[in-house]
């Protein structure tokens, strides 16, 4: 595997934390959450690794979304 840049590692970190967060949700909705996380990441997979500011922006908004959805009162997603 090619060495990953710091920014790429950040993306993987966000993905890892998001997937871990899925585990805190009620079991019956976990598949929805997982699909949602994958979809959100897949949506931007065409972005080149040199587009630093775009990636940085997405990581930032991603963390904010993760924080918001981590709320235990949010149980399901469509």
């Amino acid at each position: 595997m090619a060495r990953l840049s710091g920014l790429q590692k950040e993306v993987l970190r966000l993905y890892r934390h998001s997937l871990r967060c899925v585990r805190t949700k009620p079991e019956e909705f976990r598949s929805h959450w997982k699909a949602y996380v994958k979809e959100e990441f897949a949506r931007y997979d065409h972005i080149q690794k040199k587009q630093f500011s775009v990636v940085e922006h997405l990581i930032r908004t991603g963390h904010r979304k993760l924080e918001m959805y981590s709320n235990p009162n949010i149980k399901n997603i469509h």
Partner: peptide
């Protein structure tokens, strides 16, 4: 791909109920 690898490792974390720190996971 790298995202799937992360997913596989999270599946292992889930099975054994532990968290692999980011540094080691990378």
């Amino acid at each position: 791909d790298s995202l799937d690898t992360v997913e596989a490792l999270v599946a292992l974390e889930e099975e054994f109920d532990l968290e692999i720190p980011d540094k080691i996971s990378d």
